[in-house]
């Protein structure tokens, strides 16, 4: 390996050097390797894909949501041409006129339900596996918050088409908020933005739906996946080869524990 071939040099200069440069400053390459090149228990399988399936559904929602936001207009003002509200008209044209607009809107609409179902399934598998126990308590808590945020996404998004279903479900929803003690009436007042639910409410729901809640969700998902990577995924607890299974006590328990402690290493 005395002289490097031309090709090797090229690779080194064009790809590896910039990567090193970035990695030296950000640890991004080391981070990616840390995420990808790690071991997981050998007995995990389909039940443990539900979390990443939920992530995929979320990404579908984000991508289709961005496209919808390019064409949707959150205004309850009546459009003089169509005689319907601007929001409703924009939804109509996304569905009917925009190329593949129906697909984008349909995927966003049904992706929401799929996302919620996957969250429940994922949570169910975590519960069944007892995977919320030490040391994964915070993974579980970020998960519960994600679920709550996901449902809020559904609530705020439901109003946006500004059709009868949307409008009346939201009227009831806002009135529900109004029954809460202390902050309830204030919250209802804030959301409704006036005596009647109109453009003000629509603008607020839109801002929450496409900015505030997704921002919080992305942050929570980031923490969640960091924790999952750091702590590892647990084996099915009934598996004979589960990682961390108790071994029959061949030697005195104390000695065994000491041995494991010693070889555990890492953090």
């Amino acid at each position: 390996m005395a002289a490097k071939s031309k090709k090797d040099l090229l690779v080194e200069n064009a790809i590896l050097a910039p990567l090193d440069w970035v990695d030296e400053r950000t640890a991004a390459v080391r981070g990616t390797k840390w995420f990808l090149f790690r071991n997981v228990p050998r007995d995990i399988s389909w039940a443990q894909t539900l979390g990443s399936a939920a992530l995929t559904a979320f990404i579908v929602m984000a991508v289709t949501g961005v496209i919808l936001a390019m064409y949707y207009e959150p205004s309850a003002t009546i459009d003089p041409v169509s005689g319907k509200s601007v929001a409703y008209t924009s939804i109509e044209s996304i569905t009917n006129e925009l190329t593949l607009g129906w697909l984008v809107r349909g995927m966003h609409r049904w992706g929401a339900s799929v996302f919620i179902i996957l969250l429940f399934l994922h949570m169910g598998r975590v519960f069944l596996f007892g995977a919320y126990k030490y040391p994964r308590e915070l993974t579980w808590i970020t998960g519960v918050l994600i679920l709550a945020m996901g449902m809020l996404m559904g609530f705020t998004g439901y109003l946006l088409p500004w059709d009868q279903t949307a409008y009346w479900a939201t009227v009831v929803g806002i009135n529900l908020n109004g029954t809460a003690p202390f902050a309830g009436p204030w919250l209802a007042q804030f959301l409704a933005g006036g005596p009647e639910i109109g453009s003000d409410a629509l603008a607020k729901f839109y801002a929450l739906h496409m900015l505030a809640i997704p921002g919080a969700l992305i942050a929570l998902i980031g923490v969640h996946i960091y924790l999952v990577t750091r702590l590892g995924v647990s084996s099915p607890p009934w598996s004979g080869e589960a990682a961390g299974r108790e071994r029959p006590a061949v030697e005195p328990a104390g000695a065994r524990a000491g041995l494991v402690r010693g070889s555990g290493g890492g953090d």
Binding site: L36, N39, S45, Q48, T49, S52, Y134, G232, A243, G266
Partner: peptide, 28 residues
């Protein structure tokens, strides 16, 4: 328990990439 878990994963686990990621991709 957790130390034993990490030990087992290190010694007898399978690589996340590409083994587990394959399942994840199919499901996605």
């Amino acid at each position: 328990d957790f130390a034993r878990y990490k030990d087992d994963v290190k010694k007898e686990g399978k690589p996340f990439f590409p083994r587990a990621i394959f399942h994840d991709t199919v499901m996605s």
